[in-house]
Deep mutational scan, measured.
Amino acid sequence: GTEIELESKNGQREHYTATSEDEARKIIEKAVRRGIKRIELRGASEQLIRDMQEIAKQIGLQYRTDGSL
């Protein structure tokens, strides 16, 4: 699965493990709508990382991946 670590603007951290790319995408989209400061992805697919970079650029988000592409 993909591990997703979120940090909201007030510094609250949340951790999710998505079993599918679809689920990961839903978690990320929800977080973005809620207003999130930072997202870290571990074990994400190349496609998901590309999507994440696109989203991050659009809304000026900090993100990090573990680089295991």
Rank of each mutant, 00 (worst) to 15 (best):
G1H: 12
G1R: 13
G1I: 14
T2P: 08
T2R: 02
T2K: 01
I4N: 01
I4S: 01
E5C: 14
E5D: 11
L6H: 01
L6W: 11
L6Y: 08
E7A: 04
S8I: 12
S8F: 15
K9F: 14
N10A: 10
N10E: 11
N10T: 12
G11T: 01
G11E: 02
Q12A: 07
E14W: 13
E14Y: 13
H15Q: 08
H15N: 09
H15S: 10
H15I: 12
Y16P: 00
T17G: 03
T17W: 12
A18L: 08
T19I: 11
T19C: 13
S20I: 02
E21F: 06
D22Q: 08
D22G: 07
D22N: 06
K26G: 09
I27C: 04
I27H: 02
E29P: 00
E29R: 10
A31Y: 06
A31V: 07
R33E: 09
R33W: 06
R33S: 09
R34W: 05
I36E: 01
I36N: 01
K37C: 14
I39Y: 02
E40L: 15
L41P: 00
R42Q: 06
R42T: 07
R42K: 08
R42N: 05
G43Y: 08
G43H: 09
A44K: 01
A44C: 07
A44I: 02
A44Y: 03
A44T: 02
S45I: 03
E46I: 11
E46F: 06
E46R: 08
Q47F: 05
Q47M: 08
L48P: 00
I49Q: 11
R50Q: 07
R50T: 06
R50D: 03
D51N: 06
D51F: 15
D51G: 04
M52A: 06
Q53S: 08
Q53N: 07
Q53Y: 12
E54R: 10
E54P: 02
E54F: 10
I55W: 14
I55E: 01
A56R: 03
K57R: 14
K57L: 13
Q58W: 06
Q58R: 12
G60H: 06
G60K: 05
G60M: 06
L61D: 04
Q62M: 12
Q62W: 09
Q62K: 12
Q62I: 15
Q62C: 15
Q62L: 14
Q62G: 04
Y63T: 11
Y63S: 10
R64V: 14
R64N: 15
R64K: 11
T65W: 06
D66V: 07
D66R: 03
D66T: 05
S68Y: 11
L69W: 15
L69A: 07
